[in-house]
């Protein structure tokens, strides 16, 4: 395994280990996404279409991700550990990649519960929706991790993250909802893949500038 991937694996494992120890994020994400689904049941009128419920599912996922991203750099923030990682000789983009992978894992665990809950409460899920969510997770976590690192530097951290993130996430919602509700879901899945590729590359390339001066 090359040095770069070894660093990424090391740092990802570190984040997963920290989460297993502290249980900071995943239980909160689970509780949040299920609560949100329950709220949506009461927010939707009784005769609302199945399509409306699917739209709500995407809102739930987006805001759950936002909650998780707000905690993404928690360990680094509390002990200025970002400095500790920046001092290490590893490529800075490896820090971004590891954090993105860890966030995908946490969000994925939350969705493993949320999707069956959605199927139970509202309606069955088709494969296009599930594929859309998998693709959306990549884009959300790639862009979200970068934006979370940006928000870290500001005074209004918690406030700033959603403001920075939501305009960037609008195309994800379009792609995701399209994949769930349109007849030709494949087109929207393709769009999500395009989004992932474009934004993952520029996030990967620009992370170093976000964390250094």
């Amino acid at each position: 395994m090359s040095g770069y991937l070894r660093d990424v694996a090391l740092l990802t494992r570190k984040d997963v280990l920290l989460e297993l120890r502290a249980r900071d994020a995943v239980p909160a994400l689970l509780l949040f996404v299920v609560s949100a689904l329950v709220v949506f049941h009461f927010a939707l009128p009784a005769d609302a279409a199945e399509l409306a419920a699917k739209g709500m599912l995407w809102v739930a996922i987006l805001f759950t991700a936002l909650l998780g991203l707000g905690r993404a750099f928690q360990a680094e923030r509390q002990q200025s550990m970002l400095d500790g990682l920046l001092l290490a000789p590893c490529d800075r983009s490896a820090i971004w990649l590891a954090k993105t992978l860890a966030t995908i894992v946490f969000l994925g665990v939350a969705e493993l519960v949320a999707l069956p809950a959605f199927a139970l409460f509202f309606s069955a899920l088709d494969w296009e929706t599930v594929a859309g969510i998998a693709l959306a997770n990549l884009g959300i976590c790639a862009v979200g991790t970068l934006v979370a690192a940006m928000a870290l530097a500001s005074r209004a951290r918690e406030l700033l993250l959603p403001l920075l993130f939501l305009p960037l996430a609008i195309p994800i919602v379009v792609g995701g909802v399209g994949a769930s509700v349109a007849d030709d879901g494949g087109r929207y899945l393709g769009f999500l893949a395009l989004y992932d590729a474009v934004f993952a590359i520029i996030s990967w390339a620009s992370f170093e500038y976000v964390v250094t001066e």
Partner: peptide, 19 residues
């Protein structure tokens, strides 16, 4: 970095809105 994200967002959003 955020400004650079902006110019990437313009075509992607345009595509998204059309879709």
């Amino acid at each position: 970095v955020y400004a650079l994200f902006g110019v990437v967002l313009i075509p992607i959003s345009f595509l998204a809105i059309r879709l």
